[in-house]
Design a protein around this nucleic acid. Structure first.
Length: 505
RNA sequence: GACCCGUUAGCUCAGCUGGCAGAGCACCUGCCUUUUAAGCAGGGGGCCGCAGGUUCGAAUCCUGCACGGGUCACCA
């Protein structure tokens, strides 16, 4: 890249100057014994006089975020993973030669410093620098200090800049990590075993979705990136691992919007000898627990809506929800033609080949789900939409299944697992017919899975939780792209931006 | 896929009904030993997303394309 602007040229000049005087502009280790944010915390109340009489020596490293040259003294702010602290550098302390290095220092450079804490005249906790070294020279100017990085596209494509310039962005990903750690803890304490099952599968099963395809050279076979881990986790139930969970990526070859990224993180867990009611209770316990741990309360605000996660949460049967929330007459729900007519009246487009269950689902999506702001369990879904779920004993058209909605978002999908191999085979065959009728998302037959069921899978219930959406909720993020470090974008420019994270060929 | 909005300096943004490309931050030079959106004086920096068209003249109007955002559709 030869066509560089003056800002880059200037920084390269400084870099060469550093080399010329024998300083490696890409240095090595620095002994760090303090963090900016932790110092701010610990010495928040400590008065200046105490810092004088009992000096605190520190050595830290971080990125220069501001630089104020006052001639024979200079102020700067150093940012590390914990936050920022001001540093104060004086010519009479550092000596002529070292102080001159500041001329070769820019905002964005990484510095290692040693010194002791003091308070400035205005009371800001700062480091009185006794020595410093340029650890890494930065060749590009950082985004502006006041507004930060605003451009959404740049924030996604160059997330590192977002993380450096926008503390809120760093906070979101810190919180994401906390949430996942807390979930692991929750399940570990309840005797669940964390497992990892294949992400490359010969049959992409466990959900209704179109997969990404890939190819294994040595085996000479097509493989699919998984759309769900479900069928493998249930094989583990057969194997006697009665409580398992997995937190990892699923891949679905679908459109991208504020709630969908082609790869997304899912928690799935399975508990033997439980049914979907047990999982509602567990979910009702876990989500408020997470909220308390992360936010310190069971209330949160999402995009201006106050949401109260305190249990218990209402449980609405699908038919009941369509009646109460959707305003649909009960007598219109039982018959496929009348359901179709209702959709027509409400301006909802439907396809001729859709069955009763799919039509109900579509009505739910339009008339009910967007209105479920406070946590609500929708229960008893049409069986035809749930080919892996157990039938409801008292209503053969329904499955023992629930979904949790919060802020109009589907957060959770769970059901009592079907463990009758013959019935499972019959359901798969139905799905195959759907496929033949053109439904590319219908489930595929998985003989190996049916065989596993034939050995005997304990009665069980399983659940999937969309981690990205959960993080959206807990960080008040309007788009799933705000909680995924490198969301999928169209490639742009000549090699600028992150490499495609899902390598679809 | 349809519609709406956006794309101007490294960043954040102005730029009216077409008339020499602007500001703040950042950068460079000088001054400044407790500043903090430091200050003062001076200076440099542009493929106005890309390609066409209209016009004496286009950042500005028109068309197409690219990328991003949003709504809808598709999609659990």
């Amino acid at each position: 890249m030869e066509e560089i602007n003056q800002l880059i040229r200037e920084r390269r000049r400084k870099l060469e100057e550093l080399r010329r005087i024998g300083i490696d502009p890409y240095g090595s280790r620095w002994e760090v014994n303090a963090l900016a944010g932790e110092l701010q915390q610990r010495y928040r109340e400590t008065p200046a006089t105490v810092l004088e009489t009992e000096p605190v020596s520190v050595s830290l490293a971080g990125r220069v975020m501001t630089l104020r040259d006052h001639g024979k003294a200079t102020f700067a702010h150093l940012q590390d993973r914990s936050g920022q602290i001001q540093i104060y550098l004086r010519k009479d302390i550092l000596g002529e030669e070292t102080y001159q290095l500041l001329k070769l220092t820019d905002i964005g450079d990484l510095l290692g410093i040693t010194g002791h804490l003091f308070r400035t005249r205005t009371g800001e906790l700062s480091v009185w620098v006794q020595g410093f070294r340029i650890l890494t020279k930065s060749l590009w100017p950082l985004p502006e200090k006041w507004h930060g990085l605003v451009d959404v596209e740049t924030r996604y494509r160059q997330r590192y800049l977002d993380l450096v310039a926008n503390p809120e962005a760093a906070m979101i990903f810190t919180r994401r990590s906390q949430i996942i750690r807390e979930i692991r803890d929750f399940f570990d304490q309840r005797g669940f075993l964390e497992v990892e099952t294949p992400m490359m599968q010969g049959v992409a099963g466990g959900a209704a979705a179109r997969p990404f395809m890939t190819y294994h050279n040595a085996l000479g076979i097509d493989l699919y990136l998984r759309i769900a881990p479900e069928l493998y986790l249930k094989r583990l139930l057969v194997g006697g691992l009665d409580r398992v969970y997995e937190i990892n990526r699923n891949f679905r070859n679908e459109g991208i919007d504020t709630r969908h990224n082609p790869e997304f993180t899912m928690l799935e867990f399975y508990q033997a000898y439980a049914d979907y009611r047990d999982l509602m209770a567990l979910t009702e316990e876990m989500v408020p627990h997470l909220c308390r741990t992360i936010l310190g309360t069971e209330q949160l605000t999402y995009q201006g809506e106050r949401i109260n996660l305190s249990p218990p949460w209402p449980r609405l049967a699908v038919a009941e929800a369509l009646r109460k929330v959707g305003g649909v007459q009960e007598e219109d729900l039982g018959d496929i033609e009348r359901v179709r007519a209702v959709a027509g009246h409400r301006g909802i487009q439907v396809k001729a080949e859709w069955g009763w269950g799919k039509l109900l689902d579509e009505l739910m999506a339009h008339l009910v789900e967007p209105h479920l702001i406070q946590p609500t369990f929708l229960v008893d879904f049409p069986l035809e939409l749930s080919p892996l779920a157990k039938q409801k004993p008292d209503d053969p058209r329904l499955a023992e299944r629930f979904e949790l909605f919060v802020a109009g978002m589907e957060l959770v999908n769970a059901y009592t697992e079907l463990n009758d191999p013959q019935e499972q085979r019959r359901r798969f065959q139905e799905q195959l017919q759907e496929r033949e009728r053109g439904d590319e998302e219908a489930h595929r037959m998985d003989e190996d899975f049916v065989r596993a069921l034939e050995y005997g899978m304990p009665p069980a219930a399983g659940e999937g939780i969309g981690i990205d959406r959960l993080v959206m909720l807990f960080t008040d993020s309007p788009s799933i792209r705000d909680v995924i470090l490198f969301p999928q974008l169209r490639p742009k420019g000549e090699g600028i931006g992150p490499p495609g994270s899902s390598d679809v060929v």
